[in-house]
Nucleic acid binder design. Structure first.
Lengths: 111, 111
DNA sequence: GCGTCGTATCGACAAATGTCGATACGTAAA
DNA sequence: TTTACGTATCGACATTTGTCGATACGACGC
């Protein structure tokens, strides 16, 4: 998917358009896998906010190709950013992108 | 899926457990379909907050069985509630359940 | 150059998912 | 008791998805 853009007003507050629904649904689909949620949480909760991909396979109990696949999906949505350092790939969370999805679920206009 | 319970602290703020990741992922999976997002938005934005199922098929452009299927998934997660009135089924959104998912995406402990 | 090691891609497969036509179920009116 | 109508379920299908072994790509050290 493409990078998750600022999208629309909260869907419970204003009617959502079909295209915005497509965009948001694609974003939530990225969050609809437990391994990806655990990866996000692991990265965000690591001191420094950055984690080497080599340290992610073991804690989530998935193979290296599977973890790489999930990281690719997270990065594709812009929820994480990737930086190559030598032969290691470091990932960090992009909180602003997570907030785009969070904001779409607001129940009132005020928060 | 079962009703979406209050689950855990925001996954970017505290490490998420595997079981909580399963629960949250199941919740986001319900939101990962554009038709379901449009149904949620349609119901929430209708004056009175309640909509007859008979009025939902046309605006989302899907067949009656398909809409019924999606409403069943939304109700299964507790995101909407169903009430039978005569031969009509009325649906309303349960904002507290939407907030469970929203809270999981908080970036700081304060909001 | 050559071997090592971390990472991404490929190929394959089982499982899950969205969709609709056909049909069954229930309620209400005639 | 029929008939009509709104809704849910069933069956089938194409598509998508998560997973892993095998492999290719790249950077580093020797």
């Amino acid at each position: 998917m493409e990078i998750l853009e600022e999208c629309c007003s909260p869907l419970l507050v204003d009617p959502i358009s079909p295209t915005d629904a497509d965009t948001l649904a694609a974003g939530f689909k990225v969050l609809s896998d437990p391994v990806r949620l655990r990866l996000l949480s692991l990265i965000a909760n690591t001191p420094g906010g950055e984690v080497c991909a080599c340290d992610l396979s073991e804690p989530v109990g998935r193979s290296q190709p599977t973890v790489s696949h999930h990281l690719s999906i997270l990065a594709g949505a812009g929820l994480v950013e990737r930086e190559q350092r030598g032969k290691w790939a470091w990932y960090k969370v992009v909180p602003e992108r997570v907030e785009v999805l969070r904001d779409a679920l607001s129940v009132t206009v005020l928060d």
